[in-house]
């Protein structure tokens, strides 16, 4: 869940049409049209990626008069399916996957069960990955993959390139090679497995 209280605003005179903003927007809400960037206000999730990367400082973040709440509820879904999807992605359903918005794995799973087919759609529906834009791409890709979805990165964009390895996939040979150098792969696997299997707390979000 995210309360979107900001909106990207382009100063057309400063915009040089370089498309950087288009390439970094995690929800594809800004596009260059006739050599000027244009924001789709209804899509913008107020993440400031475009504002932070525009080489010409042509974008500012304005406070929205009416904040928009974006959230995907698990209500109406078979919760067993939500749990199953999270566990297949090796995540606990209540585990936080986006630290900025405190989005839990179950909400991303619910978005996927409701039809999200790419990280961009997940972010648009849940607000996840519209805070720091950095740390939460992998659990989103893992959840999509666990649902049998293989999204393609936006063409020409820099939004994301691919899923990367998890600790369960580290080759035995690599583990052996670095044993004694302070990397605790197997112990981390045990810890993460315990988290995945931990009981649900349920109830309303704290």
């Amino acid at each position: 869940m995210k309360v979107v209280n900001l909106l990207a605003v382009v100063e057309a005179e400063k915009c040089k049409g370089c498309r950087t903003c288009e390439r970094v927007c995690p929800v594809l809400a800004i596009k260059v049209v006739n050599r000027k960037a244009v924001v789709d206000a209804a899509r913008c999730r107020g993440c400031a990626a475009c504002e932070q990367r525009c080489p010409d400082y042509a974008i500012t973040m304005a406070k929205r008069d009416e904040p928009v709440v974006v959230a995907v509820s698990t209500e109406g879904l078979d919760y067993a399916q939500v749990v199953d999807l999270c566990r297949r992605a090796r995540l606990h359903p209540e585990q936080i996957v986006c630290y900025c918005t405190a989005t839990r794995a179950e909400e991303v799973a619910a978005a996927i069960l409701r039809g999200a087919r790419s990280p961009e759609e997940v972010s648009f529906m849940t607000g996840a990955r519209t805070g720091c834009k950095v740390e939460c791409i992998q659990p989103i890709l893992r959840l999509l993959e666990a649902a049998g979805v293989t999204p393609a990165p936006p063409k020409g964009g820099w939004q994301w390139y691919g899923r990367t390895p998890t600790v369960w996939e580290i080759p035995e040979g690599v583990k052996q090679k670095y044993t004694g150098r302070g990397f605790y792969f197997d112990e981390d696997i045990k810890l993460l497995n315990r988290v995945i299997e931990a009981p649900l707390q349920g109830g309303s979000d704290s």
Binding site: Q138, T166, V167
Partner: peptide, 23 residues
């Protein structure tokens, strides 16, 4: 590093294996 790598560090590997991404 790019976001994919940083997310590997903070979400895919675990608290005591994380810095292996750098190595």
């Amino acid at each position: 590093a790019r976001i994919e790598t940083r997310s590997t560090y903070h979400q895919n590997l675990g608290p005591r294996a994380a810095n292996f991404t750098a190595r």
